[in-house]
Deep mutational scan, measured.
Amino acid sequence: MDVFMKGLSKAKEGVVAAAEKTKQGVAEAAGKTKEGVLYVGSKTKEGVVHGVATVAEKTKEQVTNVGGAVVTGVTAVAQKTVEGAGSIAAATGFVKKDQLGKNEEGAPQEGILEDMPVDPDNEAYEMPSEEGYQDYEPEA
Rank of each mutant, 00 (worst) to 15 (best):
S87I: 04
E57R: 06
T59K: 01
G86W: 05
G93H: 10
D119Q: 14
N122K: 05
G31N: 15
T75L: 15
V74P: 02
L113P: 03
E105C: 13
Y39G: 01
A56P: 04
D2Y: 13
T75F: 11
G68S: 11
G36I: 15
P138F: 11
K45R: 15
A69L: 01
S87D: 08
K80H: 08
P117R: 04
T72C: 06
G36C: 04
A56H: 08
E110W: 13
Y133F: 13
A19T: 04
Q62L: 08
T72D: 05
A30T: 07
I88D: 04
V26W: 08
V77N: 03
T81L: 03
S9G: 04
F4L: 05
S42Q: 07
G84A: 02
T72N: 09
A76K: 14
L38A: 09
K32H: 05
K60F: 04
D121N: 13
N103V: 10
S87C: 05
V74A: 12
E130G: 08
K21A: 10
E126F: 11
K10N: 06
V15E: 00
P117C: 10
A91Q: 08
P138S: 02
G86L: 11
A19P: 00
A78P: 00
E13R: 01
D135R: 05
V40I: 01
E105N: 13
P120G: 07
A27H: 12
V74G: 03
F4K: 00
E28S: 04
K6R: 06
A29P: 00
A29S: 04
G68N: 15
E137P: 07
G41N: 00
Q109N: 10
A19E: 00
S9Q: 08
E104S: 05
K10S: 03
E123I: 12
V26D: 00
A89F: 06
T64G: 05
L113V: 03
Y39D: 15
E126C: 14
A107F: 14
K43H: 04
G86V: 02
E20G: 05
E110H: 05
E46M: 10
T44V: 05
A27P: 00
V77H: 04
T72M: 13
L113W: 03
E130A: 10
K23R: 08
K23N: 04
L38F: 12
I88N: 00
S129E: 15
A107T: 11
T72H: 00
E130C: 07
Y133I: 11
L8V: 04
K80Y: 06
T92K: 09
E104F: 11
K32T: 04
E46P: 03
N65S: 01
L38I: 05
M1Y: 00
G67A: 08
A11Y: 15
D135F: 10
P108G: 09
V40L: 13
E139A: 06
E137K: 03
A56C: 08
Y136C: 08
K60Y: 07
E131A: 02
A30P: 01
T81D: 03
A89D: 04
K97M: 01
P117W: 04
A90F: 05
K97Q: 04
V16D: 01
G67Q: 13
G93Q: 07
L38M: 11
T33F: 02
A27M: 11
V48P: 11
K34M: 15
L8G: 00
G101V: 10
T75M: 15
T33H: 04
T72K: 07
K6V: 03
K60V: 09
K10D: 04
Y136D: 02
E46K: 13
V49M: 15
E139V: 08
K32R: 06
V3T: 01
A11S: 00
V40Q: 00
V40W: 00
N103F: 11
G67K: 15
